[in-house]
Nucleic acid binder design. Structure first.
Lengths: 152, 152
DNA sequence: GTCAGTGCAAAAGTTTTGCATACAG
DNA sequence: CTGTATGCAAAACTTTTGCACTGAC
């Protein structure tokens, strides 16, 4: 098993590689942002990420514009993924964990991650039927979690 | 089969019912907006909806604020659903068609709608395992459509 | 030294709010 | 009449851009 979640060093190498390949430069800001994203378990908005970075590395100024620019870069390289949670707007997550889907409680925001092989398999089959070359998918089950059901 | 897509009249009744139930008022604007949404096959942003409404009913002024307010109302009543398409931002769709999922081409934006019973069933099972009361789900397969594959 | 990257601030875009007026019930 | 709904404009947010300066290579 274990489709191996990369360690930070591995990830950093990958970033360097991407940068070199595109004639871009390795900067402190890009590295710090990657570091924070890597350590971030929850989903985050660009604004939240900005605050985390500033809080953790107060000695380096990182502008919100750089956050947006870096997120775009990382997203195009599939190192982060963006997910939309209805009313809460667009959020990002570290994109190289083991693949998983989300179950979201619309009352309290609780998020359960899960993987289901039957679903994954069907998806490939459907894509194939339509001669569609699949690059990824988003699957969210929305509802009310057990705790919130009690409270009603 | 046919889980019966409601006709416009039915839908309008439902709206009136919702309004009455919440002590809200039946207004021309709300009706026109519903009308346009009902006839709209594609997904739309609030701004696009606004333009469609103005274009189709030039005699009634409908402000963008009313569009947003009405979309919120309809969304909370599950009469429209919002879907997020990554880079394209938040879009809405008429929420009472027969349920379907989306397959989206990231090159040309082509959207194929589909339903798969195996997936639907597994979803319910997963929700049950977590004592989760399911209210809906979002499932999008992203990739490259057949046409776009040719073009590369 | 060169050229991409950065912070900052301004601009552009999106969504929400306040308020006086209109109008449904 | 009463109180919700509306349009408009202002405000609040979110995201992108322009520019002069910095710093990686």
């Amino acid at each position: 098993m274990s489709s191996s979640i990369p360690g930070y060093e591995e990830l950093l190498d990958r970033l360097k590689q991407v940068l070199r390949r595109n004639g871009l430069k390795h900067t402190v800001q890009r590295e710090l942002i990657l570091r924070v994203i890597y350590d971030c378990d929850e989903h985050f908005s660009p604004e939240e990420l900005h605050q985390k970075v500033q809080h953790r590395f107060p000695d380096t100024r990182v502008g919100i514009a750089t956050i947006y620019r870096t997120l775009s870069l990382l997203e195009s390289e599939k190192m982060v993924t963006s997910v939309s949670f209805g009313v809460n707007g667009k959020k990002y997550e570290f994109g190289m964990k083991h693949h998983h889907d989300h179950m979201i409680c619309d009352h309290c925001g609780l998020m359960i991650e899960f993987v289901d092989n039957t679903i994954e398999t069907r998806q490939s089959a459907i894509a194939q039927e339509h001669r569609f070359e699949i690059t990824g998918h988003i699957m969210q089950i929305h509802g009310v979690c057990h705790d919130c059901q009690q409270k009603d």
